[in-house]
Amino acid sequence: MADQLYLSLWFPNFRFEALPAALVSVLRQFALVSGEKRVTAASVYPISFTESPVYQRIYVNDDRAQSTEDSIIENAVAEATEQLHDDMAYEFEMKWNLWMPEGNDTPISEAALDTLWRPHPSTVKILGFGPHFDQATYEQNGHIRVDFGLDTPWVMDEEQEEVLDEEAQKHVQQNVEMLLAFTLSVEKNCGISSRLLWTESGEPLAEKLIARLQRLN
């Protein structure tokens, strides 16, 4: 069953005023791994996620845009966090290409042996939490949380793997390698004190991913 996948990040001796710089640092690591260097959307939520955003911007980064300067990571973060409030959450969306079966509404576990696989743009949300947002949710969710969406591009059990041909398994492995590359890049370059890759159901995902790579290599 599909599960929501997150990466939570905590920083040592963290000051709220340092949140914009921390967000820029994490977004830069994502850009290095994904090759996508522009923010696609930004939102600011007050109090909790049940409230409507007080700020929201969707960036046009294709040929229709007169300028894409505003969607540069540093500029997008600076604009959204211009007025920092400790009861708000700051969310930035970026995209990366993950391998999916053609007709990406088909779960990997149901893909036929002759299914064509293609890179598909997938949205990742990177959020920074004020210390008083949603009853100090940062204590459980991290000062910054990365929301990868559903875990289906990365997770299969051994029976599902046997259904896929060698090329399909290779593409799923490439998805896993991108996820781990981003996680390790953040750990190395962002000055965090701890991180946790987790799913909404509590499944021990990190161990499953590492075991999967060991089986395929």
Rank of each mutant, 00 (worst) to 15 (best):
2 A>E: 09
4 Q>I: 06
6 Y>M: 10
7 L>R: 01
9 L>D: 07
12 P>K: 14
14 F>V: 15
15 R>A: 15
15 R>L: 10
17 E>I: 11
20 P>I: 01
27 L>K: 05
29 Q>L: 14
30 F>E: 03
35 G>C: 06
39 V>R: 12
47 I>Q: 14
52 S>P: 02
53 P>V: 05
54 V>L: 10
54 V>H: 13
55 Y>A: 07
56 Q>R: 07
62 D>H: 08
63 D>Y: 09
64 R>A: 10
66 Q>M: 13
69 E>L: 15
70 D>K: 15
71 S>Q: 12
75 N>L: 10
76 A>K: 00
79 E>K: 11
79 E>W: 08
82 E>I: 11
82 E>C: 12
83 Q>G: 05
84 L>H: 09
86 D>G: 10
87 D>N: 15
92 F>W: 04
97 N>P: 03
98 L>K: 07
102 E>W: 02
108 I>Y: 08
109 S>G: 06
110 E>L: 10
112 A>T: 08
117 W>C: 02
120 H>S: 12
124 V>F: 02
127 L>S: 02
127 L>R: 01
128 G>A: 01
130 G>T: 08
134 D>F: 13
138 Y>T: 00
139 E>I: 11
146 V>C: 05
148 F>A: 00
154 W>N: 02
157 D>Y: 01
160 Q>P: 03
161 E>K: 00
161 E>Y: 00
163 V>T: 14
163 V>F: 06
164 L>S: 04
165 D>Q: 11
166 E>P: 12
170 K>T: 12
170 K>Y: 06
171 H>P: 12
174 Q>Y: 10
175 N>G: 08
179 L>R: 02
181 A>V: 09
181 A>F: 05
186 V>S: 04
192 I>D: 04
193 S>Y: 06
194 S>H: 13
194 S>C: 08
195 R>M: 13
199 T>I: 00
199 T>M: 04
200 E>P: 03
200 E>R: 04
202 G>P: 04
206 A>G: 02
210 I>P: 04
213 L>G: 13
214 Q>K: 15
216 L>N: 09
